[in-house]
Design a protein around this nucleic acid. Sequence first.
DNA 1: TGCAAACGTGAGGATTACTCATGTTTCGGA
DNA 2: TCCGAAACATGAGTAATCCTCACGTTTGCA
Lengths: 213, 213
Amino acid sequence: MEGSTVSGSQDGQIASPRRAPSQQRSRERVERMLAAASALIAEQGSDAMRMGEVAERAGVSIGSLYQFFPDKRAIIWALAERYTAESQACIAAALAKVSDAEGLRRAFSELVDIYYRLFLAEPVMRDIWSGTQADKALRELELADSRANAEFLTAVLKRLRPTADPAALETTAFLIWQMGEATMRLAISVGRQEGDDLVAAYKRMALRELVGE
Amino acid sequence: MEGSTVSGSQDGQIASPRRAPSQQRSRERVERMLAAASALIAEQGSDAMRMGEVAERAGVSIGSLYQFFPDKRAIIWALAERYTAESQACIAAALAKVSDAEGLRRAFSELVDIYYRLFLAEPVMRDIWSGTQADKALRELELADSRANAEFLTAVLKRLRPTADPAALETTAFLIWQMGEATMRLAISVGRQEGDDLVAAYKRMALRELVGE
DNA sequence: TGCAAACGTGAGGATTACTCATGTTTCGGA
DNA sequence: TCCGAAACATGAGTAATCCTCACGTTTGCA
C-alpha cells in the first residue's frame, strides 16, 4: 500500500506505472502538485481544473506532473485517498469503545454531525465525492471506504445483538452507512436549512434501525 | 415546457438557444439522433459516446446534430427527461389510489421492485443516473424529479396521518425517496445477490418509517 | 411562384489531456 | 574524488474531440 498514492485509473485497473518519488526534492514537488490541485479544485471544481494550471501553480513543468501522476484522475484519486484514510481513523476511534445502546446512539449521532460539518467545510471533499462520481476508480475507492467504515458499525452491532443474523447486520450497517453518505451529498446540494432537516431526519431513521425504537 | 427537450446546460442556465425542429423532416432526424445516442450510451456509456459517432450513426452531419442540441450534455439531458416523464406518470398512478396503511405497504413495495427492475434492464438509465452525476443540469433534473415523486408519497402520508406535522412528512418522504434512488445506484454497482439484499433491506427500513412497525 | 426561414453540411478552429526526446541532478560504489 | 546509472525535469508537440460557421438546399407560405 506504500506507493499507492501514485496509481488510480479507469475500470479499476492500476494505471501504467509511474515513478514514485524517491528523492527528497521530488517528494516536496509532489506535495506542491497536490497542494496546487487541491487549491484549484476548491476554487473551480475538479472538472474545470486544468493540468497545465496545476503544473504552473505548483511551479513545475507539465512533464513533471505526468511523471508522478499517470493522468488527471490519478491526482484527484490521490487527494481522495488522503481524506478517506484520515476519516477512517476518526470513525474507527469513535465506534471502537461503544458497548451499549446508549453509547451507540451518542457515538453515531456525533459521527453524523462531524461528517456533515466536514462536508460543509471542505470544498475539495465535497467536489470529489459529490461531483466526480463519473470516475470508476473513485467510485470504487468510495465503495471500499464505505465498506470499511460500515464494518466498524457492523462490529458494534454484532456486539450489541449477538443473537441476530450476522449477514443481516452486515447488510444493514452497509446500507445505513451508504445512506448517510447519500444524505450528506443531498444535504449540501440543497439549501442549508433543508439540508439540516434532512440530516436530522436521517439520523432519526438510522438510529431507529440501529438501536430500536 | 414545450421546447425544453432542446435545452439543458452547465450551471443550471438554459443553454444558448437552439432551433426546435418544426418541420416533419427535422423532427424525424432529431428522433434518429436520440436513438443513435441511446444506442451508443447503452454500448459504451455516455462518457465514451462521441458526438461524431452519434451523427454518423443517425445518418446526419455533425452540424445538424449541433443545430438541435447545444452541446453534448443536452442530448443526454433530453434522454433523461424522457425517462423521468415516463416514470413519474407510473409512480403517480401507483400511489394515487392508496387509502390505508396496507395499501401503502403494497404499493410502495411494488414500486421499489419496478424501479429496481427498470434500473437493471435499462443500460441508458443506469448510465445516466449512476455515472454522469458530474453534470449540474442532470443533477438538478434528478433532484426536481425526485421532489415531484416524493410529493406523491407526501400526499399519501398526509392522508394517512392527518395529525402529523406536514413539514416533517415532506422531509421524510423526500429523504426516503432519495435513499431509494441511492440504494438503486448502489445495488446495481455491486453484485446481483448483494444488490437484491440491499434493496430488500431498504424496503424494510422505508416501510418501517412509512407505515410504522 | 418567389422569397424568407428553416434546415443541412463538413472542413476547420480551439481546447486540453498527455507524450517523448533531450538535458540536468542525485547518489552509491570504486 | 570521480564516474556511471538511475532518477528527475523540461516544454514543444501530438492526438483526440467538442463545437462553430460560412455557405448551400429544402420547405412552407403569401
